[in-house]
Simulated scan of single mutants.
Amino acid sequence: MPDFREMYNRQRKWMFYLLSIYVLGWGFTTYKTAFLGLILGTCFSFIMLWMLVRKTEKFDKAVSAGKKVKSLGSLQRMAIAAIAVMIALEYPDYFQIVSVVLGLMTSYIVIMIDYFYHALHAQK
């Protein structure tokens, strides 16, 4: 599934770009808690994206081999999101909860933007 791996590599690159922008925002603006929340949420979002890719590859291999298919790990991703929110709630002086939630959604936003971008360029 090289196409899927290429998608993941593109999305990983965009996640790193966003993280670098968030770090610059944390370093050079007065919105420290907002940017730390975005950094925390995006880091956990990146972990969730990596887990989704790993589970999807296992899913593809199982379907190709005709074996029974397990879950794609939705419960694990929800647990990781809960851990990020608990960290933000434990340290409200450092992390803004709204920013953490937005950061957690970063991978899904990047996936959608990547899809639409390449869908539009495939038509040309």
Results as ranks from 00 to 15, higher is better:
1 M>P: 05
1 M>K: 02
2 P>H: 11
3 D>R: 04
4 F>M: 12
5 R>F: 06
8 Y>G: 00
8 Y>D: 06
9 N>F: 07
9 N>C: 01
9 N>Y: 06
10 R>I: 15
11 Q>H: 05
11 Q>P: 05
13 K>L: 10
15 M>L: 15
15 M>F: 03
16 F>Q: 05
18 L>F: 15
19 L>S: 04
20 S>I: 09
21 I>P: 03
21 I>K: 11
22 Y>F: 15
22 Y>L: 09
22 Y>Q: 14
23 V>S: 11
24 L>F: 15
25 G>A: 07
26 W>I: 01
28 F>D: 09
29 T>M: 10
30 T>Q: 14
31 Y>K: 08
31 Y>P: 00
32 K>I: 10
34 A>C: 04
34 A>P: 01
34 A>E: 13
36 L>C: 13
36 L>P: 00
36 L>A: 15
37 G>Q: 13
38 L>H: 04
41 G>V: 12
42 T>G: 04
44 F>N: 08
45 S>K: 06
46 F>N: 10
47 I>H: 02
47 I>Y: 11
48 M>G: 06
51 M>Y: 08
55 K>V: 00
55 K>Y: 10
55 K>H: 07
56 T>C: 00
58 K>V: 00
60 D>Q: 10
60 D>S: 06
60 D>H: 07
62 A>H: 03
62 A>F: 01
62 A>T: 08
62 A>K: 04
65 A>R: 10
65 A>L: 08
66 G>K: 04
67 K>G: 15
68 K>R: 12
69 V>M: 03
69 V>S: 00
70 K>Q: 03
70 K>R: 03
71 S>V: 02
72 L>I: 09
73 G>Y: 02
74 S>M: 11
74 S>L: 15
75 L>N: 05
77 R>T: 08
78 M>K: 07
79 A>S: 11
79 A>F: 10
79 A>K: 04
79 A>R: 11
80 I>S: 11
80 I>G: 03
82 A>W: 05
85 V>Q: 02
86 M>Q: 09
91 Y>W: 12
92 P>V: 05
94 Y>P: 01
94 Y>L: 12
95 F>N: 06
95 F>E: 06
96 Q>W: 09
97 I>D: 02
97 I>V: 13
97 I>W: 02
97 I>C: 02
98 V>D: 10
99 S>P: 04
99 S>Q: 08
100 V>T: 09
100 V>D: 05
101 V>Y: 01
103 G>Q: 03
103 G>K: 03
105 M>C: 13
106 T>V: 09
107 S>T: 08
109 I>L: 15
110 V>L: 15
112 M>F: 13
112 M>Y: 12
113 I>K: 10
114 D>L: 06
114 D>T: 14
115 Y>W: 14
115 Y>P: 05
116 F>S: 04
117 Y>N: 05
117 Y>G: 01
118 H>D: 09
119 A>E: 14
120 L>P: 00
121 H>M: 12
122 A>D: 07
123 Q>W: 02
